[in-house]
């Protein structure tokens, strides 16, 4: 590996100063699980890595907002910390269920919420789930601080709207009364393969009616993508089999899934129809 420098600042201000360079070979590093793979493969040759591990407070912690309307997750939170947090278990039980099939203990001990989002890999499991939960992130950089929806973070295949020198500091998940969420992923060979498709859904039921719904498709496209046409079919309606079939057709029509070695376009469209129905049925308790 080529020589590079590692900085381990102990404050966010210091980290930002060290990152504030017009150089894409200067990057933050969270757990390094994605970066190390890219560095070992020589896809990425840094000149300087700024570790966020020792920044502490500004990037750490999991807290409920004072009015209880949202949960803040520091970007440096590891997946294991996320999984073990009583607040997450209570308010966002979907996260614990996603973790059951996400990587393995060793990766979860190291990988961070911020690194997972900033990586921009379309196959990751959590980004579509955060989008279905309507989560947002705080981003700090040379031009100040901004909050943007997780949905607006993704711009394309491994492309995000983060500028050089910007750091995700925290994620905010709004907590909505009676909302339920679920995620299904389909791998086509071994269970640890990257998925051919992931479907994340959050919905608010009102008796048999789907009062509100968000559907996000992961893995099958170049970035996690909200399926608004399918949402519109289902919103305000009772979740009957015919309607779910229509929603599945609509979902497959509103996106342009391509064939790859994880499956043909036809196969993945079929999976989308089936899994959308399954996830919504599960969430509606039928």
């Amino acid at each position: 590996m080529k020589n590079f420098d590692l900085e381990e600042p102990e404050s966010l201000a210091e980290a930002l100063a060290l990152l504030d360079e017009d150089d894409s070979a200067v990057r933050p590093i969270g757990g390094g699980t994605a970066l190390m793979l890219m560095m070992k493969a020589q896809f990425f040759e840094p000149t300087r890595l700024v570790s966020l591990r020792k920044v502490g407070g500004a990037l750490g912690g999991i807290d409920l907002s004072e009015d209880g309307s949202s949960l803040r997750v520091g970007a440096g939170t590891t997946f294991t910390q996320l999984q073990q947090s009583p607040l997450v278990q209570k308010h966002l039980p979907v996260i614990g269920r996603v973790m059951k099939t996400l990587a393995n203990v060793r990766v979860r001990n190291v990988a961070t919420v911020g690194g997972n989002l900033a990586h921009g890999d379309p196959h990751l499991d959590l980004p579509p789930v955060w989008m279905a939960l309507d989560a947002a992130v705080d981003v700090v950089g040379p031009s100040g601080e901004r909050r943007l929806a997780v949905a607006d973070l993704f711009q394309g295949y491994y492309e995000t709207s983060l500028a050089d020198g910007e750091v995700i500091t925290a994620l905010y998940a709004p907590l909505v009364e009676d909302r339920r969420a679920a995620y299904a992923k389909v791998t086509t060979r071994a269970s640890h393969d990257w998925p051919a498709l992931g479907v994340a859904v959050s919905l608010v039921p009102d008796g048999d009616v789907i009062a509100d719904i968000r559907i996000v498709l992961g893995a099958a496209l170049d970035m996690p993508t909200r399926l608004t046409a399918a949402e519109n079919v289902l919103r305000g309606q009772p979740a009957g089999d015919d309607l779910l079939a229509t929603a599945g057709e609509t979902a497959a029509e509103e996106v342009d899934i391509e064939s790859d070695h994880r499956g043909s376009a036809g196969y993945k469209n079929h999976l989308l129809k089936i899994y959308l129905g399954r996830v919504v049925r599960e969430l509606m308790g039928r």
Binding site: L6, I29, G32, T33, M36, L37, S51, R53, T80, V105, R106, V107, N109, V110
Partner: peptide, 12 residues
């Protein structure tokens, strides 16, 4: 904590 030594930067 268990980690994968193959992905863990020794500097850490």
């Amino acid at each position: 904590d268990a980690v994968s030594g193959c992905l863990y930067m020794a500097w850490f």
